[in-house]
Design a protein around this nucleic acid. Structure first.
Lengths: 349, 349
DNA sequence: TGCTAACTGAGGCACGTACCTCATAGCAAC
DNA sequence: GTTGCTATGAGGTACGTGCCTCAGTTAGCA
């Protein structure tokens, strides 16, 4: 049988009350006594029974995901995973809500953050552009005692705020390496397209991508990033112009999480299988494109893991614990046709 | 507040005792009453409080990992992860032990399995060669009421036994695709090396690899698998012979989880950076080789996830639940220098 | 020496579920 | 009407921890 607090009390030669004070960091215990209890913990190998603790505490965590409204497929999967988490974590007294910003306007998002209070929310996971207004609102929210973490895309500056997502510079570098290798010695230009460069993830990916290409593939040149702003007409126009200006485009890299718009614009101009093409995030669309080999590879992050990780980080913060860094690192995944797996939805944690 | 069993009893118009009988599938309840309770569960959205249930039940799971003794690095990481799991799952009344077969001999392993009883073990995760003796012993163990799952490498035949590991055919196919793409149109032979082809994972990887190479890269030919049997001298000898017999080797693929032996044998003959090289599993060695780009890519499976997944599957079986298939799929990971991450040890779940 | 403040012990209730016993109601067969 | 059976209710204890109160002890200080 595992030792209980009772055993611990006996072993440390103190009462249950004192054990309780030490275990829960409550005041009113002499230093020497604290040490005696800690020594006894080591000695008899005491481990808190989490089930009992949770039960007794009756504590609950009210968490909120705040996501952009734009309807790309990656976001849809993310929403599905939040839904899943909702029921999965309910058994652990963790209640997850999800709201989508009505607007991508930073002021709007900042205003939404401003309306959140400790009364109804313990923690917030936010996916939003990197702007001063948003940063400011996050900071104020944090000061009001609501725990905050950035999701998928980080924020500049020294914020006392966690980040749950991939290392986007590494993701970009990975894309760079794959494009470089897949081009196999060919020389020419690389088309780089994104919805917007307003988010930090896009900027970081671009940097990572460039660093590999310029260092190791002198025959390849990455063109300046084209921004579609989510507008199909604009996408076709600027992509068309790029192809007219450069007749030696050998590869295309779509930075942003919404690949479809950009890729379809490119497909208007060229047969995708004649180019080396890379995109981000596993969606119905990118999976289908991988299967037909119109896409050569996809750089992805696991949405389910993102969501669960954000929840774990926020819960840890609510308990004033440090989140386990190693546990919460999100991997940069590389997907080919061959390792997609059977399922449409994202695999495990 | 979440509804409790008491609320459920009231809602269903029955007593707590009956609710308990229904929830735990105990006999002595009329069909119509069972239905009434189930209806009430739906209606009021009752969810069992796991913490309370575990506490009250005081149930524990005694699980055992049985791993081969040979000391390759992948196995070492796996052992580390089992150690980690040991403490991580202790909070959930799950006690994990780990033994290493004293011998790789199937009879020996079968004998070890034969000695396991329900008295001290609820479930076993086994990593062993695919042999009739082992299969038989697994089956008998299963019949004795001990839950069994195969780890990393599966077993042929229709066993009533779970498998936790990657789809090795897909892993091989992924390797094939990468080798093909990285060769970038070059023609020649591919060296394929393994410790042994006695394990099912090696055989499946080879099949997957061949299927992609023959289908999509007619200029490349994969040579017959060289088996080192873990013997450095033998490795050097057979690899040397291969290079003497074929002067157009452009790539090398190491099938087995121990890459070092084979790669060093190859390094004796050629500068690794002049070949496209792929190996399996993330180890200190393969990571270092990736960093120097002596290896072009590594196909990996997450050891931490393997261990946790095996534990979850066994626990589910102990409770006569179905494991959540989607949750337990192990991904085929592709590692390049760029997406290794910072940490030496394996990341998250 | 007394006083105060900090520390400690004893005990109890609560959390939600599991599992036990015992009583009783209903029903059917003889 | 007795017996035997099943279905159900009522009530209890237990699990290990959190958190509370209150009384009692000790240490430090004037």
């Amino acid at each position: 049988m595992r030792p209980t607090t009772k055993d611990l009390a006996k072993a440390a030669g103190v009462s249950l009350a004192t054990v309780d004070r030490v275990l829960n960091g409550r005041p009113g215990v002499r230093k020497t006594t604290v040490e005696a209890v800690n020594e006894a913990i080591e000695r008899i190998g005491f481990e808190r029974n989490l089930s009992a603790a949770n039960l007794a505490r009756g504590r609950s965590y009210r968490l909120e995901f705040l996501l952009p409204k734009q309807g790309d497929q990656f976001l849809d999967t993310l929403l599905d995973r939040v839904d899943e988490a909702q029921s999965a974590f309910a058994a652990e007294a963790t209640f997850v809500r999800c709201r989508r910003a009505v607007d991508t306007d930073p002021h709007q998002i900042a205003a939404m953050l401003g309306r959140i209070t400790r009364e109804d929310t313990d923690g917030v996971a936010l996916m939003a552009p990197d702007s001063p207004q948003v940063r400011d609102a996050m900071l104020r929210l944090h000061e009001r005692g609501v725990k905050v973490t950035a999701l998928v895309s980080g924020h500049s500056g020294e914020l006392p705020i966690d980040f749950v997502g991939v290392d986007n510079a590494a993701a970009g570098a990975t894309a760079g390496r794959l494009v470089g290798q897949f081009c196999g010695g060919r020389t020419g230009k690389i088309l780089v397209v994104s919805d917007t460069m307003m988010t930090r993830d896009s900027v970081e990916r671009r940097h990572g991508f460039d660093s590999v290409i310029t260092a190791d593939y002198p025959g390849l040149t990455a063109l300046p990033t084209l921004e579609t702003y989510g507008d199909p007409d604009r996408a076709c126009r600027i992509v068309g112009t790029a192809f007219r200006n450069h007749d030696d485009i050998v590869a295309a890299y779509v930075l942003s999480s919404e690949a479809r718009l950009s890729l379809e614009a490119i497909r208007n101009e060229r047969d995708l299988s004649s180019l080396v093409t890379l995109a981000h995030e596993r969606t119905q669309y990118t999976q289908a494109m991988l299967m037909t080999r119109a896409l050569d590879a996809v750089i992805a992050q696991n949405p389910g893991h993102l969501v669960r990780s954000a929840i774990r980080v926020l819960r840890a913060r609510c308990d004033n614990r440090e989140p386990l860094a190693s546990q919460e690192t999100i991997r940069v995944e590389i997907l080919l046709k061959e390792n997609l797996g059977q399922t449409t939805d994202d695999p495990p944690d």
